[in-house]
Design a protein around this nucleic acid. Structure first.
Lengths: 233, 233
DNA sequence: GCGGCTAGAACTGCATGCAGTTCTTCACAA
DNA sequence: TTGTGAAGAACTGCATGCAGTTCTAGCCGC
């Protein structure tokens, strides 16, 4: 693509370090790189298949290869990247059977957090969910797909935080990350209006404080998407 | 402990490398270290709280610090170890709220794999489960707790492999690892006879090919343990 | 004896060197 | 044009160097 004979541009004009060095936050460079790269993968800035070259990233962020390597290892462990022996890591592609499997896990986990969130229901949760839902309904009507994705994710995030179960929250964070990657690669979604309707049902069940109803509503929501995916593969 | 003035013993007499170098398996040293350390943590050879000193481990395994560091980072990402800034990593202690949360996740995930395993039922699965169950019943009667733990884990592993859902399997592998760590630290278990009875119920539901029944049986099994834990904290 | 202080040891986290492998590219033959 | 092969570039994976931090011991004053 780029002329290979060029020894490389001055590199001072590179897009963005996008990260502060280390004031006294007591934060490691590797930790910052990990979060930065993860955010770029989840946001779609780094597309599936993009190579995560350690020397190249080290130069981009103006650090040595060590913390970059640490960050890449963590991304691979998260399954946000995949590596091959002696060939480095690339941003993961989430599709096919794996995506169906991801939704099988998601169905179970969303069921669990919805139950817990119903048990730990507070008016504050209701308020936050209602605000998201209201905007979501408008956004769906406007056909703003990008914002729809964000609100969908935010709605589920709110519920799993309300569940107050650290292990479940962490697992679902990981699932949601990979779902977001997959959603950019497929045109397959349940439709914005359907999502809003499903969320409305989950919201009402949650606010009723009935764990069974909340769990079933959440499960039905994810199962619908799962079946859509299963049909596609 | 050891005399610090000594330049160190020949080190040739150290306990065990416990790992082959690198024939042509095409395997990285860091990968081998990761699996070795993970096995030692899960088996209880490395107890919770044990420091994972990179230089010490490097010397024990006769490799440089780089692959050891890689392995430790992965263990931390797996939450089998925890690290503090500038103070390294220690083997994780799984207890309290986190353990309850772990069982909340496990309840949901075992439900999901039991449903799938019922749908993918084969006579071969039945045979393997029956063999485990038969030995388990005898072991429970004999009061062999260590073997009970192994058979309990093997039973659940068999089911999740039968589910053929890579994401679920990986998640449950991680959950099971941490459950094993926790079980060594607590005397709280459901009792061996109860476990066998629960497994028998799961087995029968699975063999009937009824996903709902299998899911409920698995869920009830884990929920019982979860409630036991919840009562304790 | 006992708490506080300080020097030294040990370790973490980042940087860098290097052998071996994989990828790229380009010349050349069919 | 298309396939082939070999040289060179780029990178991975392991080893090692080093500054700064944390831990450990022993000493001191009380």
């Amino acid at each position: 693509m780029t002329p290979p004979s060029m020894p490389r541009p001055p590199a001072a004009t590179l897009p963005a370090p996008a990260q502060e060095a280390d004031p006294q936050t007591g934060e490691r460079v590797g930790e910052l790189l990990y979060r930065t790269l993860r955010d770029r993968i989840i946001s779609g800035e780094l597309r599936p298949g993009t190579r995560l070259s350690v020397p190249a990233l080290a130069e981009e962020f103006r650090v040595s290869r060590s913390p970059v390597r640490d960050a890449v290892i963590r991304l691979v462990q998260d399954e946000l990247a995949r590596e091959t022996l002696n060939r480095g890591a690339v941003v993961a592609r989430i599709e096919g059977e794996e995506l169906v499997s991801l939704y099988e896990a998601r169905e179970a986990l969303e069921w669990a957090v919805a139950r817990l969130a119903a048990q730990r229901y507070t008016p504050a949760l209701r308020r936050r969910l209602l605000a998201l839902l209201t905007e979501h309904r408008q956004v769906a009507a406007d056909g703003d797909f990008a914002r729809h994705i964000e609100l969908d994710a935010a709605f589920h995030r709110e519920i799993r935080q309300a569940a107050q179960s650290p292990v479940l929250t962490r697992m679902l964070d990981g699932v949601q990350s990979r779902v977001l990657i997959a959603m950019r690669s497929t045109s397959l979604t349940g439709g914005m209006a359907q999502a809003v309707a499903d969320h409305q049902a989950i919201f009402e069940a949650l606010c009723s404080g009935d764990p069974d109803a909340a769990g079933e509503a959440a499960r039905a929501h994810i199962r619908r998407l799962k079946e859509l995916l299963r049909a596609a593969y």
